[in-house]
């Protein structure tokens, strides 16, 4: 039985190894969330457009992304992006592009459900006021769908935050990587993995508590 010793985790070590990775994990989460929601909303609108030339590619894209393991998607993009743009790309940039495109598929399913939950009467009311499709969607339907789905979108973002650890597959420097390198350099892998797990847990758990609160609030407003 070995004694746990966390004393090597000094502020200097933390700022030297962990902070850099933490910042990247947060960046990756935020960019993929914002980009994913925008792209996902577009995909959802395509799927609900009723025009086969929009529905089929959007559905194909979403279903393909959703049936491949994220790790494989990360590997695919890491392999393909350099072939497409003709020069190698850093693991971090590759990860940001991958996660944005991958999460778009999941966010689009949420937005699709959100849009479908808005009654047809709302759309009719928009048109009856003389609004265009764009106005009806942008001013009437999407704001309501977005508000109703906010808890689910945030829950997906918590999953996204946890999934960022999978950039391990291409060696990008994220939060987990920071802990791993610190653990190797100080020969304290057990302690670093424990602290990493604790940190991920505290962040995910507190966010999920916030989402739960938000859900109750929305339920009351409804």
């Amino acid at each position: 039985m070995l004694a746990l010793d966390f004393s090597f985790l000094t502020p200097a070590v933390i700022s030297g190894y962990i902070v850099k990775g933490f910042i990247f994990s947060l960046q990756l989460t935020l960019i993929a969330m914002l980009g994913g929601i925008v792209l996902g909303t577009l995909l959802a609108l395509m799927r609900l457009s009723g025009r086969p030339w929009l529905v089929v590619p959007a559905a194909g894209y979403v279903n393909t992304m959703r049936s491949i393991p994220l790790v494989m998607v990360i590997l695919w993009f890491f392999l393909l992006i350099p072939l497409v743009i003709g020069r190698p790309l850093g693991a971090e940039i590759s990860a940001i592009i991958t996660f944005t495109l991958f999460e778009a598929a999941y966010y689009s399913e949420i937005m699709r459900a959100g849009i479908q939950s808005i009654s047809r009467g709302q759309v009719a009311a928009g048109y009856a006021l003389g609004m265009s499709y764009r106005q009806t969607m942008g001013l009437i339907v999407l704001p309501q769908a977005f508000r109703n789905m906010l808890p689910v979108l945030l829950t997906q973002t918590i999953i996204l935050f946890q999934d960022t650890s999978l950039v391990y597959a291409i060696g990008a420097y994220d939060l987990l990587k920071g802990f791993e390198i610190a653990g190797k350099n100080f020969n304290r892998p057990v302690e670093t993995y424990l602290v990493a797990a604790l940190l991920y847990f505290v962040i995910s758990f507190s966010l999920s508590m916030l989402v739960r609160r938000l859900q109750q609030r929305i339920a009351i407003v409804k």
């Binding site: 918590i158 946890q162 999934d163 650890s165 999978l166 391990y168 987990l176 993995y193 424990l194 990493a196 797990a197 991920y200 847990f201 995910s204 758990f205 999920s208």
Partner: peptide
């Protein structure tokens, strides 16, 4: 088990 990333759990 829901709030720790799977990869981290595997490492644990």
């Amino acid at each position: 088990f829901r709030n720790i990333p799977l990869l981290v759990q595997i490492f644990l």
